[in-house]
Design a protein around this nucleic acid. Structure first.
Length: 255
DNA sequence: ATGGTTGCTTAGCAA
């Protein structure tokens, strides 16, 4: 089973690329973030025509996550369904094939010390509590999406310059570690120990041509998923060309 | 130096 995660930065804007990518890569499961559209405007008919069943939760202008599956989709959960009153469309879980998958769009955090940064840390803490309450480390579970956190210095083009900044602040990295300590493995790192592999490059300041990137999009899996994971890739070429998303897809193969 | 680029929605916000 081929599973991918991709922050598309507006599904409507990205439809030509998304359709071409789905047709070329044929992922069995595609987890999308930043769809930026209300449910009524989601391109359901077009994606169904490509053979996908869809779970989606969106909102006007911002956020929005979706799971596309060609291997069935069931037990869809929209939002973390915890005590927090969270109107933002950032979380979807579903069973696809024999795998439970959670598609997440972690808040960006904007700047360290801001209300949005506090919200990001709280959201990451909620994600850990969601795992505690709704999943088991012994099951086949994948948690993937845009985490807006680079875990380690090797995930950052200029770790000294980024240290303490949003996306690479010790508090967010600790929150991500706490999530992984529940029982999740970074499936990309499992196959790629080398530094300098990024999934996001800022549109500004020639971020991509200068390869000033960060690895902030992740596919995390339980041990049971990890033993089935035979490969993982970042599709850097998808960041090239006309009107790209600022994120590249990350894909894994599960035996 | 709070710049710069993109997208949504239409001037300002979010990333």
């Amino acid at each position: 089973m081929r599973l991918a995660t991709w922050n598309v930065n507006s599904i409507r804007k990205r439809m030509p690329r998304l359709v071409a990518w789905l047709e070329a890569e044929k992922p069995d499961v595609a987890c999308l973030q930043e769809t930026k559209v209300e449910d009524a405007g989601f391109p359901t008919i077009e994606l169904r025509a490509l053979g996908y069943e869809i779970a989606n939760v969106g909102e006007r202008s911002y956020n929005g996550v979706a799971i596309l599956s060609r291997v069935g989709i069931s037990d869809v959960a929209i939002g973390m369904r915890d005590a927090a009153d969270d109107a933002q469309a950032r979380f979807l879980a579903a069973t696809v094939g024999d795998v439970r998958v959670a598609c997440v769009y972690v808040p960006n955090g904007q700047s360290v010390g801001s209300d949005k940064f506090a919200y990001k840390l709280e959201w990451l803490a909620r994600l850990r509590r969601w795992l505690d309450a709704n999943a088991k480390p012994a099951e086949s579970l994948v948690v993937c999406g845009d985490f807006n956190v680079a875990p380690d210095p090797i995930d950052v083009h200029d770790p000294a310059g980024w240290e303490g900044q949003v996306l690479f602040h010790p508090a967010e990295r600790e929150a991500l570690r706490h999530i992984c300590e529940w029982g999740l493995v970074d499936l990309y790192r499992k196959h790629h120990p080398e530094p300098g592999r990024y999934s996001w490059w800022d549109y500004r300041q020639l971020g991509f041509p200068k390869n000033r990137g960060l690895r902030i999009d992740h596919v995390l899996g339980t041990a049971r998923a990890a033993v089935r994971c035979t490969s993982a890739e970042i599709q850097r070429e998808m960041r090239k060309g006309k009107e790209p998303s600022d994120h590249a897809p990350v894909t894994i193969e599960l035996a």
